[in-house]
Structures are given as structure tokens and as C-alpha cells.
Amino acid sequence: MAMEAKLSHTAAMILQAVNAGHIYGFSVMEMTGLPSGTVYPAMRRLERDELIRSHWEQQSIADAEQRPPRKYYKLTRAGKMTLEASRKRYPLLAKLISSEQVESI
């Protein structure tokens, strides 16, 4: 991204949730309490602005667990920097979604 974007509180919350380990759309929804019509468009725009990036889970892993593969999201370097700036702007962000909830995938 050419210049650091100033995120809205909702976008910052989603970025914080992804950083906290809620790495697919539905878990972000559950964590933030935002509806699907807000979360998915926002994640697409964050990905468009290269603040997060996505990748598909391997088919073999999904097959072993007898479920469809998921699309996972991860913060980029620019995303981490933007999140740091957003935490200063929204001090309660870290308290709302704690980074200690990071899961290992």
C-alpha cells in the first residue's frame, strides 16, 4: 500500500481478530459479533489493500477431517504495522480481542 490507511474501528477490530488467531471468516464473525455482510466485504478490502492475505487449506487435511477446505487469512507486514497504529488510535482494541487467544493451525 502506498500510504498507511486509517482504519475504521470495525476494520481495526477485524484486523485484531485475525491477528488474534481467528483466521477464517466465521470465527471472525463469532469473535467480533459482526454480521457476515460486514465481515466478509471488510476482509476482502483488507486483502485488496494488502493488510491481510489469504490461502486455501490443503484438500488432504480437509478430506481427513471430512469437511470442505477453508480459506485462511493472515496479517501481512503492512497489516501488522497498521494494526499497531490502530491500537494507538483505539486503545480498547487489545482488551476487546486479546492476542493471547492465538491458535495454532
Binding site: 454480521p35 455482510g37 460486514t38 476482502r44
Partner: peptide
């Protein structure tokens, strides 16, 4: 959840 797909 499905209705949110329209917004997306």
C-alpha cells in the same frame, strides 16, 4: 449468515 452473502 446466508443473507450477508448478498452484501458481500
Amino acid at each position: 449468515f446466508c443473507l450477508g452473502a448478498f452484501q458481500d
